[in-house]
Design a protein around this nucleic acid. Sequence first.
DNA 1: GACATTATGGCAGTCGCTGACATTCGGCAA
DNA 2: TTGCCGAATGTCAGCGACTGCCATAATGTC
Lengths: 226, 226
Amino acid sequence: MAAQLAEATTDPACRVLGLRERKKRRTRDSLVEAAHRLFLVHGYGRTTVDEIAAAVDVSQRTFFRYFENKEQVALAVMADAEGFFIECLRRRPAEEEPLTAMRAAITESWRSLGSVEHAGPGSVTAALELLELIESTPTLLAAHLRHTAEQERQIAAILAEREGLDPATDLRPRLLAAVFGAVVRLSHLSWTTDAAAHQVGPDGMIATLERHFDQLGPALSGSWRP
Amino acid sequence: MAAQLAEATTDPACRVLGLRERKKRRTRDSLVEAAHRLFLVHGYGRTTVDEIAAAVDVSQRTFFRYFENKEQVALAVMADAEGFFIECLRRRPAEEEPLTAMRAAITESWRSLGSVEHAGPGSVTAALELLELIESTPTLLAAHLRHTAEQERQIAAILAEREGLDPATDLRPRLLAAVFGAVVRLSHLSWTTDAAAHQVGPDGMIATLERHFDQLGPALSGSWRP
DNA sequence: GACATTATGGCAGTCGCTGACATTCGGCAA
DNA sequence: TTGCCGAATGTCAGCGACTGCCATAATGTC
């Protein structure tokens, strides 16, 4: 049924997996790719799940076995990226201060995204398109924000563990995680808005993030007027 | 929060309004009230729009003329409250520092909510129930977060105007608004979680907000370890 | 009281999503 | 190879959210 385009079979890890697992992975990837393509061309709201499923030659029912809902197929790549960020954060040396570790981790994530050569989903340009799609689609933005909120809890837990604090008692981990999330979101927004700032590769995004982080202190410090 | 709609019929301003307007307002209020009641009893997901409409004796079609979607009827009270907060913020003296003004405005909002005696929608206990409902319902949480994000843009604009800055250039207003939003959300979360902290009236909420605001500086300041 | 305006109801239809059941396919052993 | 088991998929029926369309009823105006 799925005589797919994806080159997932070249992935060395897949040689170990059975045919069944490989096939599942391929159809999942194909669904994500087809969905993104259709969303970008026709818009999220004007693309039906049936169309996505048909593009991969799969029944609608099967689509909903891979993704809980229509939003998830759009946010799947984003979710992977966030998972990667979490890993980066966990690997940060324990002596780093919390905010420093998070800044370093997110920079690292974007840089590694830039090192992937192929232009498929997961490239920097694809990331930009995805962020623009999310920001311009109320439903997607809502789902994305909810997912972000969930992720901030994970981050808070990691921070608390790093510093040996009880996240239920100490408000600081959750606060810092939430502030971090806010900064990242505003950076995404800036990046998608200032179309001029798009350098190739991840450098544009990293620069935007740095600018926002650098303004965080000034923003919170009392008066803004000289 | 909002000087409520519940007493809309006794509101002197309504005497001027025609019968048509008064009637519309009444059915709208009835829909909100019925929806909240049903949501709290049966849960959001197990309450159908048909049931809400039937409870007020209107057709489903009419429901969707008052509210864009099912989420909006749940978040309507919240939206009013946020509008009231915006007014409070606008009325703050210009010499106050931005963060100070926002803290004062939100405290003021909650205090005015506490001054409303009746137990209808808009009371403090109703606010708590609503926040719990939102936090425990993924769909509602998503919609609420999106609405919050939109509101942060308004706040940023107000801050920029107060300080005479260009919100397109200066990142600080948007950053501070986003941080403020994050603090408020975490406070709501704390409040709904620690059921113990619920004093009658708005004091419990205000105290929770103060605790979070007070920890904001420590959370952002470098190392947490003594 | 006649007329324009506006709110409402009813209906048909689309789309997202789910449960139930039958069918097919991959993995594994005889 | 053969045959079996369990997993993946397809099909179908159905619910609920939401919308467009047109008819009808209520309201405001002259």
